[in-house]
C-alpha cells in the first residue's frame, strides 16, 4: 500500500521532468541547437532547492511557500483519478479534474498577486483573463464526454476517430493551460520579466517549476486517456509522446499573441470547433 502511494507520487513527478526535458531537447534540435540533456529539469530543480529563498518585503513569505506546495499537491491528487491507478478505488470524476486544474492555476495567480511588484501583478491579471477564455471550452469537452457515456469517471475512450475537432481544440487549450506559445501571455519574458514568478526564488520557484512540469504531464495524459484508447502503460506513454510532439511543434513555431488576440482566438476558434463536433454528434 505504502509502496503504491510512493509510486503514484513519484512516477508523475519523474515523467513530468522527463517530458519537460524532452521538450527542451526537441525544441533545441528544431532550432538547430544541441540542447540540454533530458534530465536537465531535475538538475534545475535540485539546484533551486539548494538556493537561498528570499523574503520579499511587503509579501507574506509563508503564504507563498504554502501556495507553491498546494499547487504541486493539487496536481498530484489528479493522478489518483487516472484509470491506471487502482489504489483504494479512488476514482473521482471530470468535475474534480477540472476543479483541481483550476485550483493549481489559482495558486500561481494568487502567488503573483501577493507580491508588491508590478510584473507579477500584470502577469497574474493576464493569466486570469486567459483562464476565462480556455476554461469554458475545456469544461464543455470534458462534460460532453461525461454526459454522452453516462459516466463522469475518467475512462479511456478511443475518441480521436469520432471527434477529431475536439482533439484540435484540446491541443489549443493545452497550450493555453500550460502557458506555452502562442499563449505564454502570463509570463511573457520580453515584456514582463517572468510574469507571476518574477519575485519567486529558491524553494518557491522550484515548487512552481515542478507544478508546471506536472501540469504538462497531466494535460498530456488527459489528452491521451480521452482520445487514444490504450490499455497498457507502454502504449499510453507512446501516445503521450506523440501529443507532446505536437505541443513542442506549436511552442517552437508560433509567436506570442497579445492578450486580446489570444482571448479572441480561444473563443472564436476553439468553441466553434467544439460546437461543430457537438452538433455532428447530436445529429
Amino acid at each position: 500500500m505504502i509502496m503504491s502511494i510512493i509510486e503514484i507520487l513519484f512516477i508523475p513527478i519523474f515523467l513530468g521532468f522527463v517530458y519537460e526535458g524532452i521538450l527542451r531537447k526537441v525544441a533545441a534540435r528544431m532550432q538547430n541547437r544541441v540542447g540540454p540533456p533530458i534530465w536537465q529539469p531535475l538538475l534545475d530543480f535540485i539546484k533551486l532547492l539548494s538556493k537561498e529563498s528570499f523574503e520579499v518585503i511587503g509579501s507574506h513569505h509563508f503564504l507563498i511557500s504554502f501556495l507553491s506546495i498546494l499547487a504541486v499537491a493539487s496536481l498530484l491528487v489528479i493522478v489518483f483519478t487516472f484509470p491506471f491507478v487502482s489504489l483504494l478505488n479512488f476514482r473521482w470524476d471530470f468535475i474534480l479534474v477540472i476543479y483541481l486544474l483550476v485550483f493549481s492555476t489559482a495558486c500561481f495567480i494568487l502567488a503573483g498577486f501577493s507580491f508588491p511588484s508590478p510584473y507579477p501583478l500584470i502577469g497574474s491579471t493576464r493569466e486570469i483573463t486567459l483562464l476565462l477564455a480556455y476554461e469554458l471550452p475545456l469544461i464543455i469537452i470534458l462534460l460532453f464526454f461525461g454526459m454522452s457515456y453516462y459516466s463522469l469517471l475518467l475512462l479511456p475512450e478511443n475518441l480521436i476517430v469520432s471527434f477529431p475537432l475536439f482533439f484540435t481544440a484540446f491541443l489549443l487549450i493545452t497550450q493555453a493551460k500550460l502557458g506555452y506559445q502562442p499563449f505564454n501571455i502570463g509570463e511573457a519574458e520580453q515584456e514582463i520579466v517572468a510574469g507571476y514568478l518574477t519575485e519567486c526564488s529558491g524553494f518557491e520557484l522550484a515548487m512552481f517549476n515542478l507544478a508546471k512540469s506536472l501540469r504538462m504531464f497531466i494535460m498530456i495524459s488527459l489528452a491521451s486517456i480521452l482520445f487514444f484508447n490504450f490499455k497498457n502503460i507502454v502504449a499510453f506513454v507512446l501516445s503521450s509522446l506523440i501529443i507532446l510532439f505536437f505541443v513542442i511543434l506549436l511552442r517552437v513555431t508560433l509567436a506570442r499573441f497579445r492578450i486580446d488576440q489570444g482571448f479572441k482566438f480561444l473563443w472564436l476558434v476553439s468553441i466553434p470547433l467544439i460546437l461543430i463536433d457537438l452538433i455532428r454528434a447530436m445529429l
Partner: peptide, 21 residues
C-alpha cells in the same frame, strides 16, 4: 545561438535577478 549554444551546459538567460546564479 546555434553555433555556440550554451544551453547544452544547462545555462539559461533569465530576466529576473531572483532566479539567477
Amino acid at each position: 545561438s546555434p553555433k555556440y549554444d550554451f544551453e547544452r551546459f544547462g545555462c539559461l538567460l533569465k530576466g529576473s535577478p531572483r532566479h539567477a546564479d
